[in-house]
Simulated assay, not measured.
Amino acid sequence: MRYAILGSAQAVRADGTPVPLGGARLRALLTALALRPGRAVPAQVLVGEVWAQDPPADAVAALQALVGRLRRALGHAAVA
């Protein structure tokens, strides 16, 4: 899997097939994680990266749902 984060964030499988990612928040999460490969990223950091100054009321639950969507799109092993 390759990740492109300049411009609109994209994921591309090894065979060159693009992975459909969906909305801007999912691409923001991918970008935040791709910039920190192999590292655990605290939930509050990811909330700040994805929602900036306007996080939802239950930001941690919203982040968990977003991570689930990203795992379904990329494969569970891609997002540890």
Rank of each mutant, 00 (worst) to 15 (best):
L21K: 08
A9E: 09
G7A: 10
Q64S: 08
A4W: 01
L30S: 02
G38E: 08
Y3Q: 14
R39S: 01
Q64L: 04
V41F: 00
R36K: 02
V50Y: 10
P20R: 15
L21M: 07
P55K: 03
A14G: 07
R2S: 05
M1E: 14
P18T: 11
L29R: 05
A61C: 00
V50D: 05
G16N: 08
A78F: 06
R71V: 12
W51F: 14
R25C: 12
G23R: 11
G23I: 06
E49S: 11
Q10W: 10
A28S: 13
P55D: 09
V12Y: 07
P18E: 15
L70D: 03
M1A: 12
G38V: 05
Q10I: 03
L6M: 08
D54V: 12
G16F: 01
L35E: 14
A11D: 02
G22Q: 05
D15V: 04
A40V: 01
A24L: 11
R39V: 00
L35I: 03
V41Y: 00
V47T: 12
V79P: 12
Q53R: 14
P18C: 11
G75K: 15
A80W: 15
A14L: 10
D58C: 10
L29Q: 01
L46H: 03
P56V: 11
Q64Y: 02
A62V: 05
A28Y: 08
P42V: 08
G23A: 14
T17Y: 02
A73G: 13
P42S: 10
G38H: 06
D54C: 04
R2Q: 08
H76Y: 06
Y3T: 10
V50N: 04
A14V: 07
E49D: 11
A52E: 11
L63A: 04
V60Y: 14
V19F: 07
A40D: 00
R25E: 15
A32R: 01
V47P: 05
L74F: 14
V41D: 00
R27P: 07
L35R: 13
A11R: 00
A77Y: 13
